[in-house]
Amino acid sequence: MFKLSPAGEEFVKKELTRYETKRSAIIPCLFKVQEENKGWVSPEAVTYLSGLMDLPEAWVNEVLNFYTMFNKEPVGKLHVQVCCNISCCMNGARELTKHLKDTFNVKEGEVSADGNVTITRVECLGSCGTAPMMQVNDNYYENLTHESAVKTIKELM
């Protein structure tokens, strides 16, 4: 049964009074749950969070399902998101994605056998002048080559 850490519960308590309405706290609290639940939000975590926030579960689910940054399925320890919008594709983002999938032997969106890596293509991350780029967990890595991207991921493992 998922439960936030004492610090996580304290965070939720503060967020509930930070905005004009409690409902605005759903996004930040879902991020906290995701952070403490190995990078994803499980159905049982939604039940737990809606109870903790004293808000309808449907409201929490509505937010969870609308936004792409919430993972509804488990992800690897490193969530590698390669931007594949127009400027990045013009600079080799699709070839880079293929190289990463082959190197780490993982299908798109799935978790590698060792649990380390998930690779997904995402839409524009606002890094068009430094393409190609990837976001690994919370950080951007820009102006990548195949070699530098692989090296970065291996160093983060």
Partner: peptide, 18 residues
């Protein structure tokens, strides 16, 4: 939390309202 449409001002307001 990741939605292009939230750059539209009324969508942004909806999002801020939770």
């Amino acid at each position: 939390a990741g939605a292009y449409i939230c750059g539209e001002e009324t969508a942004m307001i909806s999002s801020l309202e939770g």
